[in-house]
Simulated assay, not measured.
Amino acid sequence: MAIKVHEADYQDRAGAILLLRDLPNVFPRMQHVWADQGYTGKLGAEISKHLGWTLEIVKHPWSGRQGTWAPKDAPPRMVEVPAGFVVLKRRWVVERTFAWIGKSRRMSKDYEALPETSENLVYEVMIRLMVKRLAKIVT
């Protein structure tokens, strides 16, 4: 699969469809995509139209509920926002994977000049991780 690189001023939302457009050939069984709130907007319709997948935007449980309209005589419906860190649904999958990759010394910083080298190193780290886990299962 070819690496997609574009200018830094190109919005991630706009680049997402360019990135995902070739994935049905690589992952034919893929049907659902999770994204954070930065990808709200037309992306869901684009993904559904071009790829036939569904897009789920992962939001905080209180998103959009802090300042809601209420009738004149009714008390405003306020949602309590917890203090501190809140785990978002499915967000841990991405963060955990980045942590696994970051444990490899070569992947702890972005030292590589070519994106192809970084991509191959990600494959190497994940292959090593899976072989290590499979070896535990076999023995």
Rank of each mutant, 00 (worst) to 15 (best):
P75K: 15
H60S: 13
T54K: 09
S104A: 11
P75M: 13
V81R: 14
H60C: 10
A35R: 00
G64K: 07
P76H: 05
L129H: 07
R21E: 08
W53C: 04
N120Q: 15
L134S: 06
L55H: 11
H50N: 10
A74N: 14
K89A: 07
V79T: 15
R96Q: 12
R105I: 01
A113L: 04
W62I: 06
G52D: 04
M30A: 15
L114Y: 04
R105P: 00
Y111E: 09
R133P: 00
H50R: 08
V86H: 02
E116W: 12
L18M: 09
M130H: 07
G52E: 13
V94D: 10
F98I: 14
L55I: 05
W34F: 15
E124I: 14
R96M: 03
D22P: 11
R133M: 06
G44P: 01
K89F: 11
E46G: 00
K89T: 15
K72Y: 13
V93Y: 08
E80M: 06
Y39P: 01
L43W: 06
F98L: 15
A70T: 14
P71E: 15
H32A: 03
G52A: 06
D22Y: 09
E112G: 02
G38M: 05
V86Q: 08
A83I: 11
R128N: 14
R133S: 08
V122N: 00
